[in-house]
Amino acid sequence: MERMTEEQVKTIANMLRKRSLWMIHYCTGCGAMELPPTMTSRYDMERFGLAPYVTSRQADILLITGYLNVKTLRRVITVYEQMLDPKYVIGFGSCALNGGVYWDSYAVIKQLDRYIPADLYIAGCMPRPEAIISAFRHLMELIDSGKADGYKRYKRNLAYYKENQRKVLG
């Protein structure tokens, strides 16, 4: 039998990866309020192969559910670095995107992707379960086509991210 090319292995791996995504159980902000409905009977995200998981080592997706203040950012970076490749980050709501209603707050960071690479953002404050599910579907497509490469970017541009992190964390 012929051996598979690297390209083919990648395609198959991506196809399998997207079907079983475990998200880490970390509610960083108020967007987490829409996760229980998404997880439970009404919207039931398990039908897409998504399930919450408790430890960072086994999880694939890190959800930044809303605002991150500086104190949480430190933990989030630790959690992110603990996670194994491939790993994906979804930013929830306008707070992760640009600070949202807390644009003038001294504690909340604006722009999540300066500190850790985000693969996807969900707009809204707070995003509805439908939006969350559609974001997951979109993430699956990105994984399938190999475009969800945040973890690679993080490695490539580590100096940039570390510099930004150092600036806010002190």
Partner: peptide, 22 residues
């Protein structure tokens, strides 16, 4: 402190009606 967003400070800087969103 993980969820500290400085509400009380932010409210001082906004009009009463804007605070409704906060």
């Amino acid at each position: 402190g993980y969820l500290h967003r400085a509400f009380e400070k932010a409210m001082e800087g906004r009009y009463y009606i804007q605070n409704l969103a906060l």
